[in-house]
């Protein structure tokens, strides 16, 4: 008799708790992006392919399927840390080297208008037509360097983006102080 009461009361308790939990799971459900989208949002979207995948999204997919998180040189350490945080893995050392940010520049006098770079550009940031001089839309260039190799005349140069007064990061120690008389 005593044991029956215990079983019934505990059972009821379990039922109630289960209902509450079930309700909470629906009521407080956190809507989250699929993991691939989240990874893709962290990647720098240079589409440079240095990770071995043709673009950032494919790499995001690969990471979601367990690939290493350290294959994105343009993103550098910052991206690795964020990915490590998101994926719950240990941050590892970057494969390849982190370069200062640069944009492509077409040397106009050397461009023969072959359109090869235009075809290589993953973000359509090169403007031009056959036999016409090409130029890079600096604002859209991701610095992926994919246009450099195809150029038959080696006329594309990666020019590091200079720091301006607008992008300066308030690093007082980096200022070289001139001797004044």
């Amino acid at each position: 008799m005593g044991i029956g009461v215990a079983i019934i009361s505990l059972g009821l308790l379990a039922l109630v708790a289960g209902l509450i939990l079930g309700y909470a799971a629906i009521r407080f459900k956190v809507k989250s992006d699929p993991i691939v989208e989240q990874i893709d949002a962290i990647l720098p979207q240079t589409q440079c392919g240095q990770c071995g995948y043709p673009g950032c999204k494919p790499y995001a997919n690969a990471i979601a399927n367990g690939d290493e998180i350290n294959k994105c040189p343009p993103g550098g350490e910052a991206v690795i840390l964020k990915l490590a945080d998101l994926m719950g893995v240990e941050p590892t050392k970057l494969e390849g080297e982190e370069k200062p940010k640069a944009v492509a520049f077409v040397h106009e006098d050397e461009c023969i208008g072959c359109t090869k770079c235009i075809q290589a550009c993953p973000v359509d940031a090169i403007l031009g037509a056959t036999r016409q001089m090409h130029t890079v839309i600096t604002d859209e260039c991701t610095g992926c360097e994919l246009c450099v190799a195809p150029c038959p005349t080696d006329c594309i140069e990666m020019i590091p983006v200079d720091e301006t007064t607008k992008t300066w990061q308030w690093d007082l120690n980096s200022i070289s102080i001139k001797e004044v008389q």
Binding site: W170, L172, I175, I177, K178, E179, V180, Q181
Partner: peptide
């Protein structure tokens, strides 16, 4: 003479 730098 060199200028010393500091922040406000």
């Amino acid at each position: 003479m060199k200028f010393a730098l500091a922040s406000s």
